[in-house]
Nucleic acid binder design. Structure first.
Lengths: 116, 116
DNA sequence: TAGGGTACTTACTTGAAAGTAAGCTTTGAG
DNA sequence: CTCAAAGCTTACTTTCAAGTAAGTACCCTA
């Protein structure tokens, strides 16, 4: 660990942890959809038409490695893979809800807008 | 507005709005410090030694244009500029608190860690 | 007249995230 | 024998946030 890193860790705002796990371009949307119900890869593709297979796969892998999402493979042909919000992922739900609420209320013209 | 954008806007998760305003590398830290009290540019520099003047200025300008932060210039020599959390910025406090809490609880080894 | 303090800005470079396009695997159906 | 379906992976390119380093403006003090 290099000099300064420990101090940085101590001062580092825990908010960044949340931003880190939710911070991928499509992650909030994916989690939001999974909150509703378990979904297959192809269902997510259809529900988020702008996302590429690469990004969807990558974000799902990251959410899985963060343990927010559970991946279940059914060894059938053609393959079937289901993604669902884990119990751990569900601990994020109140956080997402309050973020959502603020976002809805305060998303308005005149402020800098996120890039679509 | 190009094709698809409207649909994207409608489906777009409001969580992204929050991530957008808090999403700069130093923004959560800056807001956290301003929540405590009004601070000068040079004070923020000292409190966040890793940030460069460029990034601090840029983030402060963005927070100001998002109306979360108020910038007050005192026309003295040498110049004095104070930054404080606006009333609007204060509406974000409960959101930041719950994010912080989740971050503190769930920041742990074994998960993908944010880049320092 | 030279230097110092405060609060920046500008030009350039680096690196990570995201996008594009194509390929792979397995097996049953035509 | 070939194709389609599902769920990816790989190689390459583009975009954009962040970092580096230097410069600017102002007036005061020594």
């Amino acid at each position: 660990m290099e000099a300064g890193t420990k101090a940085a860790l101590e001062r580092k705002c825990p908010i960044e942890t949340v931003i880190h796990v939710l911070g991928g371009k499509w992650k909030p949307t994916i989690l939001w959809l999974l909150l509703d119900s378990t979904k297959r890869f192809s269902e997510l593709e259809k529900l988020i038409p702008e996302v590429t297979q690469k990004m969807l796969a990558q974000h799902l892998r990251e959410l899985e490695s963060d343990q927010l999402v559970t991946r279940t493979v059914y060894p059938s042909v053609p393959p079937k893979v289901e993604y669902s919000l884990s119990d751990y992922g569900k601990t994020l739900v109140p956080v997402m809800e309050i973020m959502c609420k603020w976002g809805e209320t305060h998303q308005r013209p005149g402020l800098r807008q996120p890039v679509l």
